[in-house]
């Protein structure tokens, strides 16, 4: 059933796949993020309790959900790498780590900026904020462990083990709201059958969620290509590719200069 996936274990095929997917990811991300953000900021109705400050939800919730989602994706990639011995799986895992860390940072920062007017403090040791902070530490641990090894093959395996150990923390993050009863309001959109949010408020949120996801995909394709180039530096196909791409950009630059000089 999964046989069609196996060719992509080869770095060359994975690189090509990234190149094909990349423009779609970027275009989709840009489109969804601009629609969702403008809709959320300007057209969605005001929340009757929180006024306009609730509009931070349109970036806070997507980044919070996807910071966890990216970590789970990393753990799955690590598991795939272990089971099938795919080097590309480890590479995509480490390609996702920095962008996941950025998502976690965004969730923490917007949470703080939302908490200041609502709770009166930039930082509250509430369960969800705290577990999001722990998630940031976990990301940093994986990145630091990967960076500590000289041999990147070994580094990928080691970081993979740590990602899998850390994934135990994800359910704790998710159920922390129920476990430690605190200030933070309950989950807003996980209850699809009976959403506690009006549909005209929900749509921009879902669009932005998709936009964030596509953005993560787009950055991951770029970083995965970086990772492949870094590790396959001495393979002929990478060398011809590097020459071609650099020559292309130089040509384009020269053409641009000619145009400006002509004007």
């Amino acid at each position: 059933m999964w046989k069609w996936l196996h060719p992509y274990a080869k770095t060359e095929r994975a690189y090509q796949l990234c190149l094909t997917l990349q423009p779609w990811f970027w275009a989709g991300a840009l489109l969804c993020l601009s629609i969702g953000t403008v809709w959320g900021l300007a057209f969605a109705p005001q929340d009757y309790q929180q006024g306009d400050s609730f509009r931070i939800i349109y970036i806070h919730v997507p980044s919070a959900i996807l910071s966890m989602g990216t970590y789970v994706a990393m753990a799955i990639a690590a598991l795939v790498g272990m089971v099938w011995q795919w080097r590309t799986a480890y590479m995509s895992m480490i390609a996702m780590a920095p962008i996941g860390a950025v998502m976690t940072f965004i969730a923490l920062f917007t949470g703080a900026a939302w908490g200041k007017p609502m709770w009166g403090a930039w930082w509250v040791w509430d369960a969800r904020l705290t577990s999001e902070l722990i998630l940031l530490f976990l990301y940093m641990g994986v990145i630091a462990l990967y960076g500590a090894f000289e041999d990147k093959q070994q580094a990928g395996k080691a970081a993979g083990v740590m990602a899998l150990v850390g994934v135990v923390n994800i359910p704790i993050i998710h159920y922390s709201v129920e476990w430690w009863n605190t200030l933070h309001q309950g989950a807003t959109i996980s209850k699809f059958d009976n959403p506690s949010i009006a549909p005209e408020m929900l749509w921009p949120l879902l669009i932005n969620l998709l936009g964030f996801a596509l953005f993560i995909g787009a950055v991951t394709t770029v970083r995965l290509r970086n990772e492949i180039v870094l590790r396959e530096m001495h393979r002929p196909w990478v060398q011809t590719l590097a020459k071609e791409q650099l020559a292309n950009t130089q040509q384009r630059r020269a053409a641009n200069q000619n145009m400006t000089e002509g004007n």
Binding site: L41, R55, P117
Partner: peptide
Amino acid sequence: MGGYGFYVWLSF
């Protein structure tokens, strides 16, 4: 933003 402009625009 109904008085919350600083926080909303800072976040975005």
